[in-house]
């Protein structure tokens, strides 16, 4: 499935993601990592810990609704894979980000911005295995 190259929208979106990461650090002193925020929601240490995570998550989920309000349509979510692959992939992502202690936002943006050796190693590792997986799935298995 082909998608349109959107350099300006993607750069603008990236800038907003960066801005939110700076603001969360400046206010709550926390890393803007989807994995960390979600995992902490499952095992909160106290109510205050739970409430900041739930509130940030509520804001995230409202993002597409605000985009819908201004543009008249939800952001595109095109899923070119089967439900089985979606569930398998989701489960594997959950295992990986928990042991790896982060994902694209936590390691790839916030950790890399702090020049953390762990985040740099994690990001290079998952970018490589994602690329290999996409190649294998699309060009060797033909899914």
């Amino acid at each position: 499935m082909e998608t349109v190259f959107t350099p300006f929208l993607s750069l603008g979106g990236g800038v907003l993601i960066g801005l939110s990461a700076i603001l969360l650090m400046a206010t709550a002193g926390r890393i803007m990592g989807a994995t960390g925020i979600l995992a902490g929601l499952l095992q909160p240490s106290n109510f205050s810990d739970w409430s900041w995570r739930a509130t940030v998550l509520a804001g995230m989920v409202t993002g597409p609704v605000v985009v819908m309000f201004f543009t008249g349509e939800f952001p595109a979510v095109q899923v070119p894979i089967s439900t089985t692959m979606l569930i398998t992939g989701g489960f594997i992502v959950g295992l990986g980000v928990t042991f790896g202690a982060g994902c694209t936002s936590g390691h790839g943006v916030c950790g890399m911005a702090r020049l953390s050796p762990r985040s740099i190693a994690a990001t290079f590792t998952f970018m490589i295995t994602t690329g290999i997986t996409v190649y294998v799935v699309r060009h060797m298995l033909g899914a």
Binding site: G100, A121, T129
Partner: peptide
């Protein structure tokens, strides 16, 4: 860290979603 990140990449490559993209 390294094995977990490698596994995350496999799941990302299969599904096309990462947690930061899927939650919003």
């Amino acid at each position: 860290l390294i094995a977990g990140s490698a596994v995350f990449g496999i799941g990302w490559g299969i599904s096309g979603f990462c947690p930061g993209g899927a939650l919003p």
